[in-house]
């Protein structure tokens, strides 16, 4: 089962992903990110500390937003991944294309740097 929790800290939207993202649930991630963008968020942190699994369907969702975010000048940073989850991003080289940080603090610092 996949769950999302959203919190806001000033102008930063933090989306926590809880559970597993596979081909049957990736649509929920897609719809959630699309909604966040529609609501006008420009600084998005994705908390992956409770993400237990991600398949190519989930990777594909994040990948599909890279260009759109670049065009709209939105910043998305993922953080807190378990080693096994990070490895899935690593296999395809997506860990070097997406913004991925180890901790919440590091993600916020990177967000500040990228916002300048």
């Amino acid at each position: 089962m996949l769950q999302f929790k959203q919190t806001k800290e000033n102008d930063i939207l933090i989306l926590e992903i809880i559970g597993e993202i596979d081909a049957s649930s990736s649509i929920e991630l897609d719809l959630t990110i699309a909604k966040i963008v529609d609501l006008g968020a420009t600084k998005i942190l994705i908390d992956c500390s409770s993400l237990e699994y991600i398949s190519s369907a989930g990777l594909g969702v994040f990948m599909s937003y890279i260009e759109e975010f670049k065009e709209k000048k939105l910043i998305m940073i993922l953080f807190g991944m378990k080693k096994k989850v990070f490895h899935t991003f690593e296999i395809l080289g997506l860990s070097k294309i997406l913004n991925i940080c180890e901790t919440n603090e590091e993600a916020k610092k990177t967000l500040n740097e990228l916002s300048i």
Binding site: D30, S56, V61, M63, Y65, E67, L92, G93
Partner: peptide, 22 residues
């Protein structure tokens, strides 16, 4: 080519590459 998939904003196409890598 992942760069093409990103440019085309595609969500699919990664699974086979993953399996072949693993």
């Amino acid at each position: 080519d992942i760069k093409n998939l990103i440019f085309e904003k595609r969500k699919g196409g990664l699974g086979v590459k993953l399996v072949k890598s693993i």
